[in-house]
């Protein structure tokens, strides 16, 4: 199982150059059954990452470009009257894909955002009183541009909380960019082929669930969370949903590193991505708050 994971990571690395950590994190997010928010400027490879990820895992993929006039039904789909059969017939929207890339999510109006976020949480869409289950695995990768906020609808804190992780891709290093320019990427990208089936992925997700989370590590997570609640340094404290998210992400991280138990290092590795967007209001990808927190909270032996 882990060999497959290693291969996946290797393949992804050859597509998205110099972004090993982000690739691992997004894979980890996927394994933890969470949704991913990528916050970065345009042209950083957000789409490439999403595309490669879905390809390699053998998942369906649909991209939705969010705009201010996008309506909820544009993404969920709607019931259409079939004149031939004289019946109403549900026509699924782009949400009914295993991997959905919601590009520039903050450009759409709150109503559309809510529809997406509701679907993310419930794993189903209700239209005209009828629930339509979304496919499994279901994975939303949303992106947003942290700058140029005019005319956008920034996600409220409560909705940011729905994303398991927020990561920033950042500029590639010089070597990687050189390789991109030399065209080594486009050739490699085509080579990406499915290494897993959706069934495999679901199995992996259940294995992640069975990773041992010892008392000691749980206490460490609680110490971290409690610190945000007691201290005045954090604009917002971490919710229980956040602690669950940390635990799940840590498990997935341990799984990626072929371990069947979580160590504090796993918690520390995923913590900034999981916690930063829940701690502060301001959009930032430096993860200063969570790094401070990590260096402050003592790990009991």
């Amino acid at each position: 199982m882990n060999q497959a994971l290693d291969q996946i990571i290797q393949q992804l690395n050859s597509v998205i150059l110099g972004k090993q950590q982000q690739i691992k994190l997004s894979l980890c997010c996927l394994l933890a059954k969470g949704h991913l928010l990528i916050e970065d400027l345009p042209g950083m490879g957000k789409t490439s990452l999403a595309h490669a990820l879905s390809n390699i895992l053998g998942l369906d993929y649909q991209r939705v470009q969010f705009t201010s006039d996008l309506l909820p039904s544009d993404i969920t789909g709607s019931t259409i009257f079939d004149p031939n059969k004289q019946t109403f017939h549900f026509h699924p929207g782009p949400l009914f894909n295993q991997v959905v890339l919601a590009d520039e999510i903050n450009r759409a109006g709150p109503k559309t955002q809510s529809a997406l976020l509701e679907a993310m949480e419930e794993q189903q869409v209700s239209i005209d009183g009828k629930s339509h289950a979304l496919p499994t695995p279901f994975f939303v990768i949303a992106t947003q541009n942290p700058m140029h906020q005019a005319g956008t609808f920034p996600l409220p804190e409560s909705q940011l909380d729905r994303f398991l992780m927020r990561i920033g891709l950042g500029y590639p290093d010089k070597e990687s960019e050189k390789a991109i320019l030399l065209g080594e990427i486009s050739a490699a990208a085509k080579k990406v082929s499915a290494l897993l089936t959706p069934a495999n992925l679901v199995e992996m997700q259940s294995l992640v669930n069975s990773v041992v989370l010892s008392n000691v590590v749980v206490e460490y997570i609680l110490d971290l969370v409690t610190e945000t609640r007691d201290s005045q340094d954090y604009p917002m404290a971490l919710s229980p949903r956040a602690s669950i998210a940390i635990a799940n992400a840590a498990k997935a991280w341990a799984f990626i590193h072929s371990r069947d138990y979580v160590i504090p290092d796993d918690v520390q590795a995923i913590f900034p991505s999981v916690a930063e967007h829940r701690l502060g209001i301001a959009s930032n990808t430096t993860n200063k708050l969570s790094h401070d927190l990590l260096s402050k909270v003592k790990i009991n032996p």
Partner: peptide
Amino acid sequence: RKDGETVEV
């Protein structure tokens, strides 16, 4: 050993 330093580190 610093605060927040894991055993491994």
